[in-house]
Structure formats: structure tokens, C-alpha cells
Write a protein that binds this DNA or RNA. Sequence first.
DNA 1: ACAGCATGAAATAAAAATATTACACATGAA
DNA 2: TTCATGTGTAATATTTTTATTTCATGCTGT
Lengths: 107, 107
Amino acid sequence: MLETLAALANPHRLRILEVLHAEGRAYVSQLARKLGISRPLLHLHLKKLQDAGLVLSKMELSQDGKSLNYFEIVMFDIALNPASVADAARSLPLSTKYEISERDKHE
Amino acid sequence: MLETLAALANPHRLRILEVLHAEGRAYVSQLARKLGISRPLLHLHLKKLQDAGLVLSKMELSQDGKSLNYFEIVMFDIALNPASVADAARSLPLSTKYEISERDKHE
DNA sequence: ACAGCATGAAATAAAAATATTACACATGAA
DNA sequence: TTCATGTGTAATATTTTTATTTCATGCTGT
């Protein structure tokens, strides 16, 4: 979940999802134009979204022979509340140093 | 919503919420010990959580006269899905440069 | 007076994320 | 061939976030 949250915590990436949600799908250069950002930058943000499993891409050939990389949203539905967050925290790599002093044990 | 996502997208802050969820509340030094991190660092993370409205604090005096700053969770329940995210994206400060080329208009 | 435990905050360092610039390569059309 | 379109990546710069260090304060109890 942490990776998903990190992937969503950026204005560009929210907008990318907004466009994909509205349009169904879009290819990279097209998306870059719609958002008004450069392709390399968009590429970085798409990679994060893809690594988090929020979008997927499919290479296609247009009629005039250009290869277009189409992106679309992978459906997700996550509940964010104290319990779900606490749950996510438990499945984090523990930070070795962790010594509970007697005083704080059950408070 | 962006601020909330950013506030949640960090392992320390998830753990802070985990502890507060389990314990109900905790004061700063106590929390720092439980998490095994320094007070100044914890302070920074608590500030982010508080700025995002996910926690609140209340100063109290212990019986032996020390002032303890207790933190607790502010209840939240957010649905994260393509529609809610797209919605959040729409309420972002628009990035001035935004010129839709004729070609990409309705695709 | 000093130790112990609580508070906060400023200054600095380090690390990670974001953004830009510059390449390289492929295809179809003029 | 050159232009316009598409693809990607590597190197660098910039900005933001995270972390540490240091300082200052207050209150008990010995």
C-alpha cells in the first residue's frame, strides 16, 4: 500500500490518471501534450504508476506505421482509514533498532 | 486529498498512525521511544500528519508537573479509486501552460 | 545545584524525488 | 534527403523531503 500511496501523492500523476479515466486510454506523446509536460518527465511518472500497478501499457502500431504506447488505468479501489493504514504499517520492513522501555510497554 | 496522500506516503508516518490506532493516544517522547526514532524527526512527521488533518494534539499536565503533548488520530475514511482520484485532480492548481492541440482534442 | 524527563525549534547534512537537456533510433510523407 | 511524427534512455541539475545535530526552556526530585 505504501507504494500505491507514494505513486498517488503527486499532482502530475493524479492528472495522468484523470486523463486516462476520462479518455479510457492515451499514448505517451498524446498524453504529454494534454498535460503540457515533457515526454521524459511523463515517462518517469508513468513508470511510477506502472510499478505501483495503477496503469498498464500496450504497444500498438498505428495505420501510418508508428508504434504508439497506449496507457490505461488498472482498476483499483482502496479504503483509507485508521485500521487499513495500521494494517499496512504492520507489513513494513521493521527498522531493527526497536527497544521498548519498561515504562512505555502497555500505555 | 493530495496533501492527505502525501502525508500517508511514508513508513514512519504509517507506523505513527499504527501506534496511535492501537494505543488510542501517546505523547511525543513516548511515541519516539516506541518507534525508535529521535524526537526532532518525530516532530517533523507529526507536523505533516497534523497539517493534513490526520492527527490532533492536546497539551496536558502530568501529576508530576511535566507537560505532555498527547497525539491522537482524527477519524478519516477515504475511498481511493479512479473516479475519486480523477476528481481530486480536477481541484488542483492548474499549471498555466496548457495548450490542447487540435489533433488531441477529443481523443 | 544538578540529574532526569518533558517540551520546542533552528541550522545543517544527506538522501530521494522531480525536472531538464541532450541523445539515439524508427517510420511515413513531402 | 529532410521533416514531422512516434519511441526510449542516460546524464545532469534542481528541488523537496528526510534526518541529524545542537541549542534553549520548564518542571520535579535528590
